[in-house]
Amino acid sequence: MPGGSREQGLARQRRDVPVVAFRDVTKVYDGGSVGLEKVSLEIGRGEFVFLVGPTGCGKSTCVRLLMKEIDADAGEILISGHELSTMPRKKVPKLRRNVGVVFQDFKLLPNRTVYDNVAYSLQVIGESRESIRRKVPDILRLVGLSTKLHNYPDQLSGGEQQRVSIARAFVNHPPLLIADEPTGNLDPETSIGIMQLIYRINRTGTTVVVATHDREMVDKMRRRVIELREGRLMRDQTGGMYSEEESTVEFAARLRKELGIGSDAHREHRDHASPLITP
């Protein structure tokens, strides 16, 4: 890559300020159930992190805290050095524009087409018509849906719907992308496609946090894993066995092999025919 050393230097500098930092964060819901208890962690720029644990372990609490949908009861949460608990209400929208979020249930608007779903999210943050016209086809090409612009969500498969919601979350290229159970509703083969897409987004330099309870997938992907149990941090380890240079195609192929699926020719063929761009 030309000029790579300088860019790497900048990247290393930015890495000093973690994209996400939790310091002794505690959240107790009304009624006394504990969401998080004294959780401390840091996620650096460009990292790919899994947040795992059984239902009720605090994964979704983390996601909601990061969006400032709820506030922590104690401790600090910093996003790119900005403290969330002291952040005035007025700045919350700005925060959310810099944090893309993908949900298990997609949260698409059923009465709008794929194109309009993505365009709507740009409209409501006041983007100009021109930039919407430029950005939306681009991002839909990136997620591999350029042929389904005018379909409605209920005409799409679950995997395709999730791609739309990823497109919506990433259309503004936020520095942080959070996915809360992105493959929870999908079959394993489709899940790999979604993970591949998220991995590709990560390769563009975006920090990615994926909350999931799919332990198998997590183990096979060999990325950093943060495990929560009953609101407490149980494990934070980096699966050091992966190389950062792994391309998305290699990544998907390895996942398929390790999960023991997608070996039949039909699926291989479909994967190669898909209009994915590999970085």
Binding site: R89, P93, K94, L95, R97, K107, V124, I125, R168
Partner: peptide
């Protein structure tokens, strides 16, 4: 969705 993608309150 509007809240999710960061539309301002008045928007």
């Amino acid at each position: 969705v509007m809240r999710l993608v960061g539309a301002t309150n008045w928007f």
